[in-house]
Each structure stands twice: as structure tokens, then as C-alpha cells.
Design a protein around this nucleic acid. Sequence first.
RNA 1: GCCAAUAUAGCUCAGUUGGCCAGAGCAGCUGAUUUGUAAUCAGCCGGUCGGGGGUUCGAAUCCCUCUAUUGGCUCCA
Length: 646
Amino acid sequence: MINITLPDNSVKQVQEGTTPLDIAKDISEGLARNVLAASVNNEIWDATRPITTDATLKLYTWNDTEGKAAMWHSSAHLMAEAVELLYPGVKFGIGPDIENGFYYDIDFMDYEISEKDLSKIEKKMLELAREKQTFVREDISKADAESYFKEKGDEYKLELISELEDGQITLYKSGSFTDLCRGPHIPNTGFIKAVKLTKVAGAYWRGDENRKQLTRIYGITFPKKKELDEYLVLLEEAKKRDHRILGKELELFTFSQNVGQGLPLWLPKGAELREKLEQFLKKVQKKAGYEPVISPHIGNVNLYKTSGHYQKYGEESFRPITTPVEGEEFFLKPMNCPHHCEIYASRPHSYRELPIRYAEFGTVYRYEQSGELHGLTRVRGFTQDDAHIFCTPDQIKQEFNGVIDIIQHIFSALDFKDVIIQISLRDPDNKEKYIGSEENWEKSERAIIEVAEERNLDAIIEYGEAAFYGPKMDFMVRDAIGRKWQLGTIQVDYNLPERFDLTYIGADNEKHRPVMIHRAPFGSMERFVAVLIEHCAGNFPLWLTPDQIIILPISEKFNEYGKKVLNSLDKYGLRGLIDTRSEKTGRKIRDAELKKVPFMFIVGEKEEESGTVSVRRHGEGDLGTFNLEEIAAKINDEVERLTELK
RNA sequence: GCCAAUAUAGCUCAGUUGGCCAGAGCAGCUGAUUUGUAAUCAGCCGGUCGGGGGUUCGAAUCCCUCUAUUGGCUCCA
């Protein structure tokens, strides 16, 4: 007999070899019907795998991420089985579960696969699922595993096996499909009641673009058909928040083939929104001791040779611009830092001046591969809300903290709650990839980690994600369909001050090397606006929205009074527009609602007589009648409340 | 850049297996209407069917190619 400890700390005595599923049955039939996986002594475990020692046991259902993972991982196997039956001879790469579903990378050999083929595979999967195939786990020696896949002719699995240790290799067999797999899996395929294969994509084997590109099929499955339908509705809803769609509807930005791909054109309303954001940050930065600077859009090639960017990115940049007579070479500015270094170097500095903080909304141009461009989030020309802080090594932490204050202020003013903070450090196995001394890297990496700890930031650490010149801390926010985008960033840089030979005179009257901190709280105006649009579904906060108020005269007779009201908005620091069309009020309201204008001022006979406006709030409805001063104060209060420093 | 898909009016989309002047709704313009809290009516304008090449008696429709876009992969100073 063995003792099984359950999450409520109760202990069950069971026969050795009892499975988690048996224990679930013992608790209740209902639970047993829903158990997808388990963990035994914190090791993830098949529900059908016997337990042989005393253990703590957790049971996972569809409501647990572990349960979903087992479901989706098993679905990947099911898809592989279906694919193998439909396309005999294909070879398999890897097929894991992911955040929302699963994928499998498959070498389809001579078969050509497109999205048209997916429904056929889905159908086969459901057919196989109904057979309630069990997943059978088998421990296997490395030699046996190798001979199995050698015979099958699957070189991808062989490569994976070659990296595994003998004694740790398991296979899972379900139906006619056997896969190299660590598990766990759901008890049988019958749990999979609804299947949606979502996309076909190319994916390089092992993520290496020099290796073969396999065909990746993404999919998602559910234990109930209804849940799939709900998921699809959710996706449809999310698509409506897409910044590319809203950007068009709200006339914020556009692209033109004539201008070029990845080069956004800001329309008047988009420009207004962007300007409001810039003003907001400028105000915050002024308070925080930043000084504005301005640098040109191109820089001599030597500038980038000095900075090291030429060596690293020269080949993958927009081609240089040359002067006709002298033959000088210029690059479109891909970042502002070298320019700011030159500004710093324009005169000597005393330690008493530090930290010096140069800020610039600097437009930069980077050659991004065509397939990577994406709306406003990934473009070839964009404006960074850049600043470079030159300080002493002792000031790093304090400055880092100051920047985090700004970033957190912005995120809270815009109600960004689910912010992912990532600290990017060197790849410890590949240190020669980075410019700068071991000692400096050590120091800066430690400084970032300390700041994160002291501020209690819930940060994840990623090794190998650092920039080539220094470690960084990034702030990421998800878009409407869950993709992560980096917004704010703070990067320590010991390298550029070295390369530009920047110095300051210390208290000891000796020259010292300042440290540089790159930082951009928005990241880029383009990407930030994109994420902001998706975050608020186009319903911008009152202080940011291009038009705060739309005046709707009941009929043309009241256009004059409406215009008078419009003109007096300026007096209260409010902005708006008027709808003078010869339309019915219902129509004007509908259009204003669709344009997401926060306030509608409806004016007719009553209002003109009493010098008031009837106020309707977007998404809320009629608020009643106000005189202008009253409602303006109300609106301004709200603006104040939304932007005040916390 | 790679894999897959898409491209028809300013926008959203129809256009059956290739077959007369390529359609609709919205937007725009003109006129009528003078409107009280989510769509007033009528008329008009608007398209080298992404560009180029080919197959065919005939191409929006089939093929090739280029461009752009979308979903991934790789990349992201």
C-alpha cells in the first residue's frame, strides 16, 4: 500500500500501481470524467500512469492550465496521426502545446499543403477522436528509439533523440501514431470533441533560418463544441479592436504603396492624438529634469563606424546616401544615440552636471524584412520618444528608478494593467556576441536586477535577449489577439561612452567615463498608439481623444448657436467639432457614437433660449442639460484626474 | 527574406463551371426634408477588377511574374 496526499492534505491509502484516474473515480465519477492529467510529487503525470510510491497528487481538468496543456499536446498527436493517415510518408518535427492550442511542424515532402486542406484533416481528427484511442506510454532505450525512427525514416526525431540521455526516453502510442514524447497525455482521444485548425505557416526546423523550413499547422481543440464556438466569437470580437481596422475607421493613419511599405502616414486625427501623447510625456520629462535636443535624420557613416552600429548593421540597413560632389556617405538615422553622444561630447562636463538627460522625439529608419512589417507595430520609419541619460556609475540605480517612475506613470494614466516586464541579459554561453568588457556587463546586469528586486517588480529574466551593447529592461503589453509587443525600454550602455570617448571631470580633477542609459517609455509613437488603440478599442481617454465633443444641432436653424458653443469650447481648453448636416438627430447621434466621440452636445430651441447644451455621453446616453461652464468644468475635472501625477 | 493565403469603387463586400455595357450597401455630391437622443427620402458621381505578361474567339475569373497586404517562421540597434 502507498499513501497519496491530496491538495486538501487528506491522505488516501491505495494499492501500489493505482493511477490518478483510479483515485479520481474514488472521489467522484464526475471528477473522473473530467481528469485530463495529474501531477505526482510535482512531476507532471498521465492520469492513467500508475503511481508506485508515496506521493502528493494533484488532478488537473480543463479548468487548469496543466489540463489544457495535456489536452492540446494530445491534440497535436491526434493531428499527427490524422496527417500521417492522409499523407503517408511525411516526417514529423516537434508538436507542442502553446498558449492557445498547439501546433505540429511537419515535413510534407512532396505534398503541397494549404489552408484548403485543413478541414479534411479536422474531419479525420474528429473521426479518430471518437475511437477514444488511449495514449500508451513506453519507456524505451536510446538504441531502440533510434532504430524505430531510423526504420521510419524520420531524421528530425533522430536528431532530437541524439540529444537525449539513455534511460530518459519515452514514446507515446495512440492509434497508429507513435511519437517521441515526454508526456503527459489525456486518458484517451475521446475528450477532444471540437477541433479547429487555424493556420498553416512555414517554420524553420529548430528555429534556424539556415535549416529546412517545415510546414507548421496550428490548431486548437475543446472538450465541448460550444466552447469552440465561443472561442471563435471571441476571436471575431478581438479582430474588431485591431488597430489597423480602427485606424482606418477613425481616420488616424494610412499607408500608401507610393510612399512605401512600412512608412505610415498620420492623418489629422492621428496626428492630434500623437501630439497629445507627446505633450503629456514632454511635461513629465520636463519635471524629471530632461532637456530637449534635436538631431538630423541622417548621419555620416563615420558616426556609425564609431558607434559600432555600422559593423553590426551596416549591411542590413537602408543603403547609404551619398553626396554628388564629395562622395560622402550618410546613413538614414537608425537610432538617436550616436547623435546624442556627439551632443554630449560638444563640450567638457563636470561631475556636478550629471546626470545629463537629453530627450528627443527622434524619427529613425530601419530596414525591416518585408515579411515582418505589421500595421503600426512594426514599421520601417518610426519616432522614438528617446532620451539618453549620461551619469556616473553610482547614479545608475537612481536614474533607472526615475525612468521606471515615468513608465509606470504613463501606463497607469492609460490604464495599461497587464504589463509584462522582461529583463534581458547576455546569453551566458555566447558572450563573444556582445561588445564591451566582462566587468562592465557584470555591473550593469546586476544593477538592473537589483532595481527590479528593490521595486518588487514582477519581472521575468531572459538570457540571450540583451542588445549587443548592454542589458535592458522592457515593458510589454499584449495586443487585441494576445501578441506581445515591446513598448517601454530601458537599456544600460557602458559601450557607447567608451567608443565615443565620452568623459566628465570628477571631484578628483581626473577624467572619468560616464555611463549611458537609453530609454523610451512609449518605445515608439507608432507602436504605442497601435497598442493603445487596441487596448481601449478606439475609445481613447478623454484627455487624449482627438475630438472630445461633437455638437449636434437639432436642425439647421440651430447651426448658428451650435457654432457659438463650438467657438467657446476653446476658452475652456476643450476641443470638438460640429455636425451641421441636414440630418435627423437620431442619425447624428448614431454617427457620433460610431466615431466614439466622448461627449455629444445637443442643441435646439430649448438650449438656445436658455444658453445651455443637452449632454449625451458616448456609450452611456443622456446626462441632462447643463450650462457650458458647468459641463466644461466637469470634463476638465475628469481630464485632470486622468493625467495627474500619482 | 522564407512558407501559406489574399488583392473588385474612398470603405465593406457580391460576381455561379471563362461569355453581352462589372454589381450592392455605406461614404461623397445634388435636391427635397427642418428634424429632440443609435440610420429621412430621391437622384447622381464613382472601377485600366493591384501592375505587367501569357493562354483563349473571349479573362475580374485560368497560368506566369512583380508589387502590396494578412497569418506564421526568422529577424528586431
